[in-house]
Amino acid sequence: MKRVLMILLILTTGGIKLSAQTKGKKAPAAKPKVVTGAVMANGKKIYGQYCLACHMADGAGVPNMNPPLTKTSYVLGDKTRLINVILNGLATGEEIDGETYTNIMPPHNFLKDQEIADVLSFVRNSFGNKAGGISVAEVKAIRAKNTKK
């Protein structure tokens, strides 16, 4: 079972990479990337390990403390901003959809590109969210840009 999952994973990763390459840089991200069952499964595993403690199993967060991941402007909005929350964490305490939160989100830059892509794809398609997936290439590009400056 594990091996099948791994193969599926490699295949989907390869697939996303390929499509990213063939589409080229100019292609608008109009068409949402399809999120496969394998990505959802791996994303869920990573969510359980690294996010659930604060954002809860149902993504509803903790009032005043940890924000929800249900249809927030971060989760459904600009992908660069979203990926950066995972890479750099968030501790500005600024309003998120009209509420503020006292806890901090530590950086999760120790996660691999694949893991970040999967967990965000999972989040964007769970807890009532419906949005396109995040690809490994997108995470890789933003991580590279961050380390350059």
Partner: peptide, 8 residues
């Protein structure tokens, strides 16, 4: 060092 960070 990194509040609530992994193995920090």
């Amino acid at each position: 060092v990194q509040d609530r960070g992994l193995r920090s």
